[in-house]
Every structure is written in structure tokens, then in C-alpha cells.
Amino acid sequence: MMWALRRWVQSAATVLSNAYALFPFTRNIYQGKLKSVCVPGLNCYSCPAATGACPLGSLQTIFANIRPSFKAGNFHIGLYVLGMLGITGSLVGRMPCAWVCPFGFLQELIHKIPSRKIEIPHWMIYIKYGFLALFVILLPLIVVDGLGYGTTWFCKYVCPTGTLEAGIPMLILQPQLRELAGLLYLNKIAILIVFLVLMVFIRRPFCRTVCPLGAIYSFFNKVSVFRMVHHPDTCVLCKECYKGCPMGVRFYEGANQPDCIRCLKCMQESCKFDAISYEFAGLPVKEEKAESAKSP
């Protein structure tokens, strides 16, 4: 039940984040007022259908333009975007990754393709903090041109969401842009293809190893208003939670780990021993379980 609900929410969020249906006629991106609000998931604002701003792209732009902004007396340091991310994170931690991120949704769908599944070494989940520190914060802040402008390193050299949602469709919609496609474009296409292939074999490879947005939300998992709870007294260490988890989290080793995206699959479907629940503001929430998870 919860699983079906999540699929509906993921589908609705993907459509709402990309609801600008006039782009085939305008051959351009949406330019309305909604674009000043960041969507909670990873969704490129240069996607012709995008209705909101990408939080990661917005943050990088503000960091890259920080010197000219200070010179002009504007003092834009990213508080508006950080505020939006912080409010979401404080309330639900990394939950947007499971419920409203279009790129997370895509990874789960592609992972359904039948194949041998591979597990990544645990240390790889820490790589995303390097991408956040370097490509989103430090490089845009430090590497600047003569006028003091930096660049959006993550968007430019890495982001496969941008390639999929903006790189491919914009070159179709605006043929004049094709002349500009060179090595940079090939690099981004190659990264996208690598991740599309990895998604078949590995659970959410991008979210777990690279996504700086997931890295930001993960800082809130242990302190957010909504939190998962593990009950060691009833846990029999059967590890079913780990087997079914879309993020490969070993829930039995502790609740609210950085990679838990609060999809609730372990609680609703995997655990037959009532060893998993969640709480809101410290108050336990009782939930009816899915039929399949009722008896051991």
C-alpha cells in the first residue's frame, strides 16, 4: 500500500516539477514566477519543462557570483536556498530523495530491469560529501576569472540530470546550440550513460555515491522532526530490511543513517518482527502494516 502510494507521489512530483507543456511551441524554458522557488529534489532548471529552480544549481550560481555580488553591495550568500533546504531537512531529513526527486525515481525504475545485482563497498557512500565540498562549494567560490566570476562546477562537469533534462532536449529544440557541443558535452553524455548503465545493476548509484543534494539532506537525518526508530529488542538480525532497501542501508545497524531516504519500505514490507517504526517530534506513530509483512 505504502509502496504504491510512494510510486504515485513520485510520479506526481516528477510531473509537477516538469509541468511546462508549452515548450514544444516556445522552444524555450519556462520563465514564470515559480522559477524563483527551488524544488526539493534534483531537477534541472534548464529542462524545457521545468517549473521550478534546481537547489544545487542555484547554490552554485550564488557561490560563483559571490565576489561581484559583494562588489555591487548585494551580499547574496545563498541564505534563501539554504533556508529552503534547511526547512525541508529539519522536518523530514532525506525523505525528498525517496518521495519527490525525479532522478531518484528514474534510478529505481531502471533498477527494475532484471539483471544480476551488485553491491558497492560501503566507503563509496562518502564520495558524495567530496562532490558537495569541492564541486558545489569550494571550486565555485575559489576558481574565478578576471572579473571575479566563478563557474557552476557540478553542473558543468558532472550533473547527469542536467544532461538528461537540459543537454539532450535543448539541443533538439534549439539546433543552433548543436554547434557549441564539444568535449564538455561529450564528457557529460559519457557520465550520463555510465550512470544509466550502473542503475540497472546497482541500487540508486547516483544518490549513494555522488548526489550533493542527498549529502546536504543526510546531515539532517539524525535530528529531523520525522525520524525512523529501530527496536533492537524485537530485531532478530534477519537482514531482510537491508535486502529490500533501495539505498542498501543496513537498518539493523541503527536508524537514521545518512543514506536512509525514509521510503518506509523496510517498515512496511521487509521487517516481519515489528523492529522498525517512525516517530514525529519524538512521538511514536502507529501504522497498519502491509499484508505481506504481517506474519513472520
Binding site: 520563465q31 534548464s46 544549481g57 548585494n74 536556498v81 557552476t152 558535452y185
Partner: peptide, 22 residues
Amino acid sequence: AGEVAAVWEKAVNICLSCVGIG
């Protein structure tokens, strides 16, 4: 601090970095 306008301005112009051409 006026950051809403800064976010909007970036989001309504095609970002060449995102597309992979600049």
C-alpha cells in the same frame, strides 16, 4: 537580501553549463 530575484534570474535563462556547452 534580494536572493529570490537572483535565483529567478538564473533559473529563467538557459544555463549553458547544465546543457554541457559552456
